[in-house]
Design a binder for these strands. Structure first.
Length: 165
DNA sequence: GCCAACGTTGGC
DNA sequence: GCCAACGTTGGC
């Protein structure tokens, strides 16, 4: 089986005031480590499920018009989030050690802009995208699974080719 | 700014 | 192990 057939898709939320799509694009190698996630469900996804080559929808949250704004790719899969072991970090967790990192992160790289952002209003009206986890009330997971039909619907709406194929 | 929903903490 | 209290998230 080829990598293409096993690729999975995710949505990652970020408050642009903290870290935006533009920040990712201007980062070295257009790449960043997704550190500071302190939620067990998201940690387990990053440690066990999210693989290099997987697709990422980059989503801006907590703004007047929340939206999917870009396409990224996972370039490094789960490894210890060392900010947890750094007493000077705002993400410090005193339980974390080299033998027991407690928290994990992945690296993602910006791949393509959308022709225009896909807002929650757009998603709400869309038969496929309205079913996304991110549209469910009260869903606070910062890393969420996305189905292949949802991924394809985003690319179709954005009128771009899949940058990961 | 409001508030519903959620995850975590800690007393018992 | 239960659950109330609390802090945070995030849409609106």
């Amino acid at each position: 089986m080829t990598k293409t057939n096993t690729r999975r898709y995710w949505l990652m939320k970020s408050e642009p005031a903290a870290f935006s799509w533009e920040d990712l694009k201007s980062a070295k190698n257009r790449t960043t480590c997704w550190d500071g996630v302190r939620n067990y469900q998201a940690k387990n996804l990053m440690r066990d499920e999210i693989k290099a080559g997987d697709g990422v929808l980059f989503y801006h949250s907590n703004i007047p018009s929340p939206a999917i704004v870009g396409i990224a790719e996972v370039v490094r899969e789960g490894y210890p989030d060392d900010t947890a072991m750094d007493p000077a970090s705002r993400y410090h967790d005193p339980r974390a050690t080299r033998d027991n990192p407690v928290w994990y992160m992945v690296d993602i790289r910006a791949k393509a802009d959308l022709s225009s952002p896909i807002t929650r209003n757009d998603m709400r009206r869309h038969p496929v995208l309205s079913q996304m986890d991110v549209m469910k009330k009260g869903n606070r997971l910062s890393v969420q699974p996305v189905t292949k039909p949802q991924w394809q619907a985003v690319l179709a709406l954005a009128t771009i080719q899949d940058p990961l194929v």
